[in-house]
Design a protein around this nucleic acid. Structure first.
Lengths: 166, 166, 166, 166
DNA sequence: TTTT
DNA sequence: TTTT
């Protein structure tokens, strides 16, 4: 990436269960509806609330993990970037969409029906857009240990370089 | 604010001069068009670019300062939050808008026609939505010193508390 | 503030109960010990963990709220800046300290003894360094509603300006 | 990474040229001294400045690029995490160090001797800790195009997946 | 030690 | 010293 920074950090609760789809290539594309609420006082001193509903997209392994562990009501930390898209419908009307493309996810404690999920586990995930196995059912089995993954974490490489003073 | 985090950090260049308007109450509402570009390789190994154009809104004093110092091409750091709005047009068609509401701004060196602006000065600004004087011309005069302001910086207060070990 | 960005975002768990002190001027100064853990694979493919312990300082009302609601084990979101300090001890030896000075705090669900605290409530706080009342006992009484506060939130002002399209 | 968020975002100027060293394994380890300055008013209404000097470490390719393009005075955007270290000197005295470990870097316009560097180009870099070629001189040749790299960008992989709607 |  |  280059020329610019486009970074979004969200902490919010899911308004619904994640929606997982797969591309023809077998890559998971998961969509979350995430609420963040802010409060301020109006000029009469009354508290006013406003909730933003973010549409968050998670690709590849990150999307699979989200589909596996997140549930409606769950609180989650998302780091990603904003993407604006425009589509022209069959009726010729242009439609605009704004997505948050996640490249990191961290489940937070408690909240909603999914609260405590994963046996109370909490984990951070950074999943990549790498091609998922063709069979989506092969999503990662629940692990006892809090799973960890992140976008652009291409397993191999020499990053496990003991030279780096971790 | 409460229940959630909704934070955006952008570093980009202005596609146009800032557009400054004033509310009936005399508050500045400035709109920036800010580009952030990312690069990736497609499956054929070719570099692909994608540019997002963010619509950034700055209110009050922060908006005045932006209107005063920013120019097309200028590089700027913005911190704020995402806001989604929906309007129904006269034709009954719903239109969606996504804005980045700035609560901090920092001019960065160089870039475009405005490059070096402010006599080469660079400054961070945190402006508030506080009501501006009715006469918009009363925007802060250019200072030799890099001006500083930020949203929610309500001048007075006891924040200049020497107890705080700065 | 000016010329630069110095921003820290942490999500971690408290290793101990908050430690609250008061300045002569009556301002709360609360210190948290906050753990963040990262995991990586070493070159032998074994998972390695590393935990950073951050010393987080919260001043004024924000410090009072932290002292009131946070407990050992609690998960919390902190936004602030890094501050490096050097002191010379009575023995003439220089000692270095690094603090995270919080300007926003958000309690997250679950975790530790304090888990669920506040009647299960969750809240975001932005507290200021404004001078606290001389009597520290006057910390905000627990509210049923998730309290909200933030640094530089100087209550009054005109920010509750209905002109701003919240 | 897992269980926690430890994120730092800095925009500052280099106080000196980068210092590049190499591990026995041939990996670049570059150190920057980065200044961020904040301003506030003391209780007498006088402006007070305070500068933090951050010690930023960049490993692998990211370190090579930093050593190649950054210069004293240059303004730079850094994203990374905080790492606290303790060493015991030969005299038995414990010494503490705090580093910012970069995982993304973005050169910003203007500033100091290096100002405009790279033929006026500006680029974002995300370099990895991947093992560099044994011969450090083989650092990437200056490119006309703003180079791009980031930590954990393990070149190959399937990330160039045209399925992902970029 | 930067920058303004 | 936390958490999983």
């Amino acid at each position: 990436m280059a020329r610019g920074v486009n970074k979004v950090i969200l902490v919010g609760n899911l308004g619904n269960d994640p929606e997982v789809k797969y591309t023809q290539g077998g890559m998971a594309v998961t969509t979350l509806s995430l609420a963040t609420t802010s409060v301020r006082k109006d000029r009469d001193g009354n508290q006013q609330e406003r909730t933003e509903w973010h549409r968050v997209k998670l690709f590849g392994k990150l999307g699979e993990i989200a589909g596996e562990y997140l549930k409606k009501g769950r609180q989650v930390y998302i780091e990603g970037s904003i993407r604006y898209d425009k589509f022209t419908g069959a009726d010729g009307v242009e439609k605009y969409f704004t997505d948050i493309v996640a490249d990191e996810m961290q489940m937070l404690g408690g909240g909603g029906e999914g609260g405590g999920g994963m046996g109370g586990g909490r984990g951070e995930f950074r999943g990549g857009g790498e091609r998922a196995p063709r069979a989506p059912q092969s999503a990662p089995a629940p692990r006892r240990e809090a799973p960890a993954a992140r976008n652009n974490d291409f397993g191999g490489g020499d990053f496990a370089d003991d030279d780096i003073p971790f």
